[in-house]
Design a protein around this nucleic acid. Structure first.
Lengths: 194, 194, 194, 194
DNA sequence: CATTAACCGAGACGGTACGTCGTGTCTTGTT
DNA sequence: AACAAGACACGACGTACCGTCTCGGTTAATG
């Protein structure tokens, strides 16, 4: 989020302070969930002045995002087997979304995203886009292989997979069964039978 | 949510106070979004003591839920045309989720749902269940008509429709195109071709 | 500063909280001087929410004023001996102004008075006026007795006494000798010899 | 306060930086009063690093003192007329103390003087002593002339003049009437009638 | 018909967190 | 060596809400 370029003379940013802040954030999210994270608490836990957080991040969401962006990563394999690749992708999405930390973050974060479009853009860029891109590539490979029609709406397929898991996790709190991935991929492939 | 049984001698609940609270809540949600609603603000706007809110609702989410549950209602038509009915349902869902008020509420509310399972249960019961039930009935009629196989996973179909719209509205902030409903229903019906 | 009149229904002001606040203020002034008093510190010491202080006093100066107004009290005796009464008054003023607590407060308080005219008015009304009035009465008795001319400027005499002590205490930090009162009164009486 | 001698190799003190700091201080005192002057603000206004201020002055009071010491200067004339000289001196004191800038500084500065004895010493040496010395000389000339007795307490007379004006300006906020100087000198001279 | 208790408005209270400002110390690179 | 720039930990500020609590009033069924 911040590069290491110089910015005129003066004391440089202290990488240790930033590290402690991010670690404290991770710990607090794990312990108390997104709502339980406060700048006050992070600063205290990190042994850092509250001002330092304000200096580098505009909002709580931004800190959490940077601290936890690593967890939002799913990659579709490239095995040559369309069904297998898509199922693996769907399973990855389901596992990530139902994992403890993710569940502790996303609902609260989503609320902030709705009010902070810059944060939302960062979230999409850092967390959503790479995963989606990986899924879309898998679909494009399937098209190349002739397993899906050329005019397939890859975005929509990705959204179907993500949407169902997202909805069940965050809204209906319905279980994400182990065979959900298979069922979804079955419908998607059948629905696009060439 | 509240019965009208007597409760000994003394004054009964003042329906006017409740009404003013709910109206103030609606107004505040519209003006400032879910996060902008506070018990303090509602009480002030409603000309009501803060205590009165505490007396009748356990949380801000509960007030908002009661004040706005009416907006969460989609019903699938019963025209005899499976595709038409499902498209109408999908369009209804999309329109509701993209409507101003809904967008102002759901992200914040979802954050509270994640921390308050009672509120989550109420939300599902009052807002989610009726809409889902209507969609499921439409699917059951399609099965009866022979348009969908008997072993169709109706829940999953409903979740596909809701999930895509939900995801795009709240997370990816992607546009919900006018032909989304058609595309979704096409995939679903093709994916279950008997 | 606040009377005990009703102000509509509701929980009444808690006299215990106010008492604890004022006591903590006195203690902090004694320990650390006026500049060492902070609302934060008072609240912590008094075991009180910071808000409670903000509710009842508009500024730190106002709290200190209420907590310590008792110390600003000098009364001229009425012995029938003009010189004796005035000397006693001057000695009282000198003793008060050189006393520990007073010295710890007044310079800092004076700085606030310069920026807060309401506070300044309260200070004059509560702390300055009664003492001055007592001195002026002594002068009027002297006039009645024929010890001072009828057209004497009583205010000026009071200000000479107070001014010298004030100046030495706060600005020049010069000692206030034990015979200062006698010398001052001598000059004043000689200067108005009838 | 600082000489221009060399001090080993390296860059010498930048007189321009000092000048800019003092000018910025004067401007800020005029605009916002003593309390409105901050090291941060001075540095920003002067286009100077905050460190530079710390290097040369130990406290805000010291900067203000150096920036504004010129305004604290009253000199008694030497006309040969005792009454006239003393009245002129008293008028000068009154005018200085009631002048805008002075009023903006002294109350706040006095608060700092009470806590910083070094600053207090500097203040007395630079601002108070010369003016007092001038007044005392006028009194000594009066004694030489036979207008005042030999054992007159010159310090006390100076303090009477300064004290009354000081008290009215800073504490009672009473007006300093145009004939105050005459009245004071009248009392003083009558009080020492030889 | 008087009692009486539930309900209501108002708001005081101890708190938590916010975002801002200033402080004094420090570090870095430039002149 | 002096300087600008500014990062850092810290402390205090004034504000906004929170959840709990205590009042005095109103009101309507019950005794």
């Amino acid at each position: 989020m911040n590069d290491q370029t110089r910015r005129g003379p003066g004391r440089r940013r202290d990488p240790d302070a930033r590290r402690r802040i991010l670690e404290a954030t991770v710990a607090l999210v794990a312990e108390r969930g997104y709502a339980g994270v406060t700048k006050e608490g992070v600063a205290a836990r990190a042994g850092v002045g509250r001002t330092t957080i304000y200096r580098w991040w505009p909002s709580k969401g931004a800190v959490v995002l940077e601290a936890l962006r690593g967890i939002f990563e799913v990659r579709a394999p490239d095995s040559g087997d369309t069904r297998g690749d898509l199922v693996a992708y769907a399973r990855g999405v389901a596992e990530t979304l139902t994992a403890t930390t993710y569940g502790a973050i996303v609902p609260g974060l989503a609320a902030d995203l709705a009010r902070d479009s810059e944060l939302a853009a960062d979230f999409r860029r850092l967390c959503v886009a790479p995963t989606r891109a990986s899924g879309i590539q898998a679909i494009q490979r399937a098209v190349a292989r002739g397993d899906l029609p050329e005019d397939v709406d890859a975005e929509l397929i990705i959204d179907i997979i993500g949407g169902v898991v997202f909805l069940r996790t965050l809204v209906t709190h319905a279980p994400v069964e182990s065979d959900l991935a298979d069922k979804l991929v079955e419908i998607i492939l059948s629905g696009h039978r060439v």
